[in-house]
């Protein structure tokens, strides 16, 4: 069963990985987006995430369901945190489980790419000396 969540507390990947179906799974690929300490050479304190929650959850749900169909996954997970996320903490976690590894790699990449592309979530850089909204995903 695919899992899509928007959460306000710390993401612990193990809480989600434990639900991957065994022994059918032969490959599990996970991605953790982590708040790094610098952005454009400036020192970050944290990132602040805001979402259009109902639209974002719908979009994340559609994305994991789509990934399962496209890549024949056994399971898929996407969790995005909102609110203030400190440096070193996980802001987004995605996972894809499949019989063989290639589908899991492709599925996991598809999910995070799609979330960054069209999910109504925005981040604001909270620097030690100021703040600014990130205008769009350029990575």
């Amino acid at each position: 069963m695919p899992l899509a969540r928007i959460v306000r507390s710390v993401i612990h990947p193990d809480d989600y990985i434990n639900r991957i179906p065994v022994p059918e799974t032969g490959g599990l690929v996970t991605f953790s987006g982590i708040v790094r300490k610098t952005e454009d050479g400036r020192e970050l304190k944290s990132l602040y995430y805001e979402a259009h929650e109902s639209m974002a959850l719908k979009k994340i749900t559609e994305t994991v369901e789509d990934a399962i169909k496209r890549f024949g996954l056994l399971d898929a997970i996407a969790v995005h945190r909102i609110g203030e996320v400190e440096v070193g903490e996980t802001s987004v976690f995605t996972a894809a489980a499949s019989i063989h590894r290639k589908d899991a790699f492709r599925g996991c990449e598809f999910i995070i790419d799609r979330i960054k592309l069209d999910c109504p979530i925005w981040k604001k850089d909270i620097f030690k000396d100021g703040e600014r909204w990130r205008s769009e995903n350029l990575e």
């Binding site: 987006g33 995070i112 960054k116 979530i121 205008s135 769009e136 995903n137």
Partner: peptide, 10 residues
């Protein structure tokens, strides 16, 4: 009707 800027999640 909701208005918002380009997304930047992840």
């Amino acid at each position: 009707i909701d208005f918002f800027p380009p997304v930047s999640g992840g």
